[in-house]
Design a protein around this nucleic acid. Structure first.
Lengths: 227, 227
DNA sequence: TCAATGCCTTGACTTAAATCAAAAAAAGCT
DNA sequence: AGCTTTTTTTGATTTAAGTCAAGGCATTGA
């Protein structure tokens, strides 16, 4: 278990900051703990601060009336989330829930804004974080609107392979049901597509272990769609 | 035709800044003009700065191989765009094209970053702008994945009515073809849905003039989907 | 006024994916 | 282990929306 200072040092948000600033940040951070499945905030809740994951896993999602959910992000150690209302001054635009027992740091809005207004390099880090988020959303919207599910799945598998640097063997960090939600579909559809990709020797599946057999076909699929 | 100083004063990005700071900003702005249909930047281009629309209309979009496009935003006078690579330090994540003859102000990356690092309140404005964008994208992803086209259209019409403050009479600011792309669909589908909504007396259409006849049904549609 | 162009609509058809229902497999628990 | 609960898979069916093709309407301009 790391201490708060170590956690903060591991966050992109805070790197490159001078020693005394980091201490200031530690001073305003509030530790919070959540059990598996516990709701951290709901869409529409007043956004009086943002969080950094110290340990555990958190999902950010939108829900429709009829129960279907769309996962927007999944965050792990070192990732900040919930920053939007800090600067837009409005409510949270989506829900956050702990996927595992999680340990979070909470940064209250007013204290953080105070820090940022006097510290340009913290502001720059924050700008970089938000820009990256915007970039990710751009990709996600493209995926949802321009590609069919097999294309989105291929993109995700290739992304994972890259992320995990494990060559062609990858491991799903979330359940297939959750993956379906992240890809904007439902478990049945995802299952069928896995089966089809498997039967065409694009991949090999063993529970959460997946082996990429035909990378170039997967890349093609991620680009052009159509299985 | 406004002068640069007036344009800049009208931008949320720059409001609340002290006089001398505004002058600094004017100093680094570069005027650029584009004809209708002209490309401003393409996805993957190096992002060496961002733009503010002084006059005209600009669309930001993603394109797929087979010609289908997804419009992400449409910006008019006073709106900044292309800020992402300024802080993420990467390329533009989408394409930008002038929809009309447009007059833009360009802010070079390095000069702007310099300004921001010495001016916390400019940084705060920038953070607010990015946060608002993030919030909009969150809604757009929800729409694309959780709602069917009639629901997305209803949301858009209600949004327009609110925006235009014209009661129940609204005017489409873009062509129906472009609207289809903004809603993540194709013109044929949009046309059919307009026809269906019209036959059910939810709306009345006359070219780009639309009258909302049954607001509560539209709201219901925007919430729950299903026409 | 009449062609010409661009934009929108309509119809017939196909297809990807959602829904409903149920079985099978895997993971947790005592 | 044996039981329960959750997750995943499979099958049959429905449905929303995309594709292809043709026609209509309106604006522009010679």
């Amino acid at each position: 278990m790391k201490n708060i200072l170590e956690i903060i040092a591991d966050t992109s948000l805070f790197n490159g900051l001078p020693e005394n600033q980091v201490k200031e940040i530690v001073r305003i951070a509030v530790e919070k703990r959540y059990g598996k499945g516990e709701i951290i905030f709901l869409e529409g809740d007043e956004g009086n601060g943002f969080y950094v994951v110290a340990d555990g896993k958190v999902k950010i999602f939108k829900a429709s009336i009829n129960g279907k959910e769309q996962i927007l992000h999944i965050y792990g150690p070192g990732n900040p989330f919930g920053e939007v209302p800090v600067f837009s001054g409005k409510e949270f635009p989506a829900n956050a829930q702990a996927m595992l027992k999680s340990h979070l740091l909470f940064f209250p809005r007013t204290a953080f804004v105070e820090l940022i207004t006097t510290n340009p390099s913290l502001a720059m880090n924050m700008l970089a974080v938000l820009s990256m988020r915007l970039r990710e959303f751009t990709v996600q919207i493209e995926n949802l609107s321009l590609k069919e599910v097999p294309g989105r799945l291929s993109s995700y598998l290739l992304y994972l392979a890259d992320e995990q640097k494990s060559g062609t063997n990858i491991f799903l960090p979330i359940s297939k049901g959750q993956l379906a939600s992240l890809l904007g579909t439902i478990p049945e559809t995802l299952s069928r597509i896995f089966a089809k990709m498997s039967s065409r020797n694009l991949i090999e599946i063993n529970g959460r272990k997946i082996k990429l057999l035909d990378r170039s076909s997967l890349e093609d699929l991620a680009e052009h769609g159509k299985l």
